[in-house]
Design a protein around this nucleic acid. Structure first.
Lengths: 203, 203, 203, 203
DNA sequence: AATGAATGAGAATTCATTCAT
DNA sequence: AATGAATGAATTCTCATTCAT
């Protein structure tokens, strides 16, 4: 079963349809979880016919694969935006805090989507996709951290790029899922964990 | 819709059937993911009729809930076993490494199951279950860390006890879910993250 | 894709369901052709739920395969009945005519079913089925012709046994599939072809 | 619903498109059977847009009808070619053998297509088409056989034109579908059947 | 004339659940 | 208690056809 998209639309109308479908899929999973993710619901939410969905995605799994790719691209974009915004920050801690805030926002709004993607990444043969993402994310993190090489000499950026998001996510989850959510505590703990992780190399 | 099991048999043949069903469910999710998890397949794999499955579980979600609880209990048991075995360890790092290994044991070849449970915990109303598990796991971790108060003075054990299990779990996931799984890397990174998190308080 | 039935029902209720489904499938194809043959229509006509149909047949093709087998068995039964009834016929021509009539009986009002089965036999991997049928039909024909060895000396019964059923079938089809079906013409032509084929050896 | 083509282009690019569509349809049915025959697949294989297909054929059935006609014309052409090539043959047997060879080649390569057309001829209202074809084929056969009138006095050419191809086809199938295919045997048996059929009138 | 995006009815198939035995 | 046949709503996916460009 092919996981690639059926056709990759170049022009206006088609591109809009393609995007609307992915957006709808993300919205449904984020709001109701994998169990509510079905192609009819996606098409309806996207405001297109079910036939149109299958013009672009040969099957449900290929839609999921495209969604995974889209999330990785979004993640990457967020990361790059953060990288640019904090270009002038002086201290590692402030850089890390910005990173954590960016990641937190992303994950808080997409709890179910993130875990769904985790699961589906493990189920579907999307290894190449994943590697490519890690490569790129690693490059961005590398740039962000290189100014602080003296503080964190032993970090390998590509490795850190995989560990850091997971770390932020789990610590965030642990505190944000409480009732009431303890968001400040979440941020503190996440910053603490990341800094600790980064600095330990210098021990 | 009730999530509790219809009846929780304590012994005998009924208990064996109940366990076989849960075992079958775990096996299917671990092998093929959430998408392949359906009651007919579970019953067949368990070697019981579909009718029998519904004798013990009023619906599919209750089966998932029981599976979550089962995994938590197994996790806890592993943790406690680890706690006992490392009672004599002298260094914090060795304790942490043992902890991480215990956590990872459940993810070896079970990445799909672990991520499925992650996802379903967020979807199903199993807060109480989750809190109770975190409470207990936290208590165990707390005891383990008590002896090293001098090394990690700024850590509040109860807070750490909540953050740590989540942290170990997610970092492990991040590396174990790759194909092929990078289990050694996972262990290194998890140990590094935990130690960093713990020690930073002393800066 | 498996072509075998999913389960072969042994007991009353299940057997009746299985048969009703095959009967309905035959009825629909015979009446409206392959284009009208769909699983929903078959289930409805059979008076069972669509789910029940899929309990017994894993997919549409397996239903078709079962139908092919059923038709072959019916054909064979008719042939054998004919063989018994004409045990006392004196002339070769009368024997041949009985044979032809037996073969034609299945095509009366079943032209669409017969041509559908022809087509599907060529499309589906049912070689084994077909060979087995030809073998059995051949054996019956062989017995029928044995008595006339002196009239058709150059015929090798085993060879004739393979050629004849095919010959009768196709000539019948050619004339019975017209609209309106020319059944008398079909019989004449089939008899003529068979007799001609058999006797030519003596030229 | 009209079965005639929307327009029957006589020349130029339009004619080429029209032919490409029919050719694609034939190719798909011959290769994968009626079940794989759909307008989108035909358009793609023909290298034209689905819109263009509907410029020439108002609906799917009209495409099938045109295909039936095309096959009849091809059959006729083959027949006529054979008729010319064997103009000088002296014996009936050699004429028949040439005919059989021509028919065999045609049918062996188009097994699925031939049976599909059989089925669709029975389903669609194409009686007029069929009659017209039989008329013409009958004329050709008549010419071929008239030199041998003394050998086969009772044959009606129009009748023979319908019976003969069916006869050749089925005998061919019966022997060519074996493993390994017995093509020489197929030819022998077909010639024998045809000669027998033709000569019996003289009995 | 041609294109191809879009449609949506409908066909194939699945699966949670019930219930008669 | 257990069975497994049966159900049918829900889901995936197809394909004939239309129509704006």
């Amino acid at each position: 079963m092919s996981l690639g998209p059926r056709k990759t639309p170049k022009q206006g109308r088609a591109r809009a349809t393609y995007d609307a479908i992915l957006e709808a899929a993300a919205h449904i999973i984020a709001g109701q979880g994998l169990a509510a993710f079905n192609t009819n619901a996606v098409a309806e939410r996207a405001g297109v016919s079910i036939g149109s969905l299958y013009q672009y995605f040969p099957n449900k799994d290929s839609l999921m694969a495209a969604l995974i790719q889209r999330q990785q691209e979004a993640q990457l974009a967020t990361l790059q935006a953060a990288a640019e915004m904090i270009g002038s920050e002086k201290t590692l801690e402030k850089v890390v805090r910005s990173l954590v805030r960016a990641a937190m926002q992303h994950h808080r709004e997409n709890d179910l989507l993130a875990s769904a993607i985790d699961h589906e990444e493990a189920r579907l043969p999307v290894d190449a996709l994943l590697s490519s993402y890690l490569e790129k994310a690693g490059a961005v993190v590398e740039v962000m951290l290189e100014r602080f090489q003296h503080e964190i000499p032993s970090i390998m950026p590509k490795v850190a790029a995989r560990t850091l998001p997971a770390l932020v996510r789990s610590v965030t989850d642990a505190w944000a899922n409480l009732r009431p959510p303890q968001l400040e505590k979440a941020e503190e703990e996440a910053v603490r964990a990341v800094l600790g992780y980064l600095r330990i190399g210098g021990e």
